[in-house]
């Protein structure tokens, strides 16, 4: 597949002050547990009150990040809407599970069930923007956003769309934080973002976010050149996949001047990052998880951070590498286009 995929605009709701469009990385101070929450913007300027009243948290986050991205890109109706989410609306899923039990399966509110459906954010974006074109949602941990990106690149390559709105959203609830803590997803002791990468313990800090991009086949400043996903590789297979990806993109390791790395401070998966980072000794490395935390679609925040780095320079060629708990690994290559 050969198609140019330019990034015309983006928007992020994250634990950072990202919504306004700039990225001034701030290490937060957490209290109580190793969990970062997003800074929610004022949604009222984006969603009519009559629609807003029913929406749960991640629906608002997802919809508004998408709308802000469209605004930032001077577009209103994209040619396709494609998203990824690992968990969808956890709040609604939990509410419906609790209601089933509390009301013994009688007189149940339909709203949490409807909103627990993974594609509900996509449906809302399409509805609000009256976009009747291609619409898809991937729900596969660290391959949710990444397949949304691949699908988008294919849409552009096929000529089915010239502009694709592509994004990801995930939230964390206290209930789900506890559930995942039972199988070692998070650091046992309260760990501050500033200590995340040097903590030398297992688990990570939980994060969340909603991030959207407008991909276009029409040239603009920043180009997403390619993506490669690798499923459950050994360390050696990952290295081979990296080399194959670089050569398929016709680029030498020395040409990468910035590596955006998803290192999450979990010692179980550090060796993957060691291996990849070791290939780019000349490049500057930016670690994005201390700013957004770990979640299924954190890779989307990583891509957003890479775009922001390219916008301000001096980086011209960026490689993004991320994995989700050692199973789903992804490389993306970005370039500042010579226009």
């Amino acid at each position: 597949m050969k198609a140019k995929c330019y990034i015309r605009g983006c928007a992020a709701i994250s634990p950072q002050e990202s919504f306004a469009g700039h990225f001034a990385p701030q290490l937060l101070t957490l209290e109580g547990k190793s969990m970062m929450r997003v800074k929610e913007p004022d949604y009222s300027g984006f969603i009519p009150p009559n629609s807003l009243r029913r929406m749960s948290r991640v629906l608002k986050m997802g919809l508004v990040a998408a709308l802000q991205c469209l605004r930032n890109s001077n577009t209103s109706v994209p040619g396709a809407i494609i998203t990824g989410t690992g968990r969808g609306s956890l709040q609604d899923t939990e509410k419906f599970l609790h209601n089933i039990r509390d009301y013994a399966e009688t007189a149940l509110n339909p709203t949490p069930f409807i909103q627990s459906t993974y594609n509900s954010v996509n449906g809302l974006i399409a509805l609000q923007q009256q976009c009747t074109e291609y619409n898809n949602t991937f729900v596969h941990r660290g391959f949710s956003f990444e397949h949304a990106v691949l699908d988008s690149m294919m849409q552009l390559a096929e000529g089915n769309a010239t502009e694709v709105l592509t994004g990801a959203f995930d939230e964390m609830t206290d209930e789900h934080f506890y559930i995942k803590s039972r199988i070692g997803y998070w650091k046992n002791e309260l760990t501050q973002p500033a200590e995340l990468l040097d903590s030398n313990t297992t688990g990570s800090i939980s994060g969340e976010g909603a991030t959207f991009f407008l991909f276009s086949s029409k040239p603009s400043d920043i180009c997403l050149e390619g993506i490669k996903m690798v499923y459950k590789p050994s360390g050696e297979e990952l290295q081979q996949a990296l080399q194959a990806f670089l050569s398929s993109q016709d680029i030498a390791a020395e040409e990468i001047d910035l590596l955006v790395s998803g290192r999450n401070g979990d010692t179980q998966y550090g060796h993957f990052y060691d291996g990849v980072e070791g290939e780019f000794s000349d490049a500057r490395v930016f670690y994005f998880k201390p700013y957004c935390g770990e979640y299924d679609t954190a890779g989307a925040f990583g891509l957003w951070a890479a775009v922001k780095e390219l916008e301000i320079g001096p980086a011209k060629t960026v490689l993004l590498y991320n994995n989700f708990y050692g199973e789903q690994h992804t490389f993306m290559l970005l370039r500042k286009a010579a226009i």
């Binding site: 969808g88 459906t117 993974y118 594609n119 996509n122 619409n135 898809n136 949602t137 991937f138 729900v139 596969h140 391959f143 949710s144 397949h147 996903m229 499923y231 459950k232």
Partner: peptide
Amino acid sequence: IADETGIREYVTTISTA
């Protein structure tokens, strides 16, 4: 299911109701 069969080049899940 992927791991039982050994398919691994692209593995993902779609959810559009």
